[in-house]
């Protein structure tokens, strides 16, 4: 057993003088600086990630308060009442009884559209204009 121990002890011995202390310390300090930079970079990335997550959470929080169902004014009011409001004066030359749901819908979507145009679209929708039907 002792022979074997001596054999393996001799086997692991080496004669290297080792690296130069000054250059070792220099490369050690370089590696240290590199590690500090890497750590700082990691912290910056984590901070950026945390900021993005925070913005996401706030955005999602605000989206929660939005009404998901669009409620149309026209659904709760009859045609006559709707066109009697100050904002929706329609040309009296048109017969209001002919104006159907589509017109009300268009008015709800955008009140900027000209009333005459709305009546025209409505008639188109109802297939009243014969020459446009072919389109």
């Amino acid at each position: 057993m002792h022979d074997f121990e001596n054999k393996i002890i001799n086997l692991v011995q080496n004669e290297s003088s080792g690296p130069d202390a000054a250059s070792f310390i220099l490369s050690f300090r370089g590696r240290q600086q590199k590690e500090i930079l890497q750590t700082n970079r990691l912290y910056s990335s984590l901070n950026a990630l945390a900021f993005i997550l925070l913005v996401c959470v706030f955005t999602i929080g605000q989206l929660d308060h939005m009404q998901s169902d669009v409620e149309y004014f026209a659904e709760d009011i009859n045609t006559q009442e709707y066109f009697d409001t100050d904002f929706n004066l329609i040309d009296q030359a048109y017969n209001l009884s002919d104006i159907e749901t589509f017109t009300l819908f268009m008015l709800d979507e955008s009140i900027i559209i000209d009333a005459e145009e709305l009546v025209f679209y409505n008639e188109l929708y109802e297939n009243i204009i014969d020459d446009e039907v072919s389109l």
Partner: peptide, 28 residues
């Protein structure tokens, strides 16, 4: 401290690794 103990630390790892580069890395 590094100067004083470098030789022992490096020697220890050189015996294990038989590779000066690896021994230096492990010493670091």
């Amino acid at each position: 401290l590094v100067e004083i103990h470098l030789h022992n630390v490096f020697g220890f790892f050189l015996k294990i690794t038989r590779d000066e580069m690896v021994a230096e890395d492990l010493s670091q």
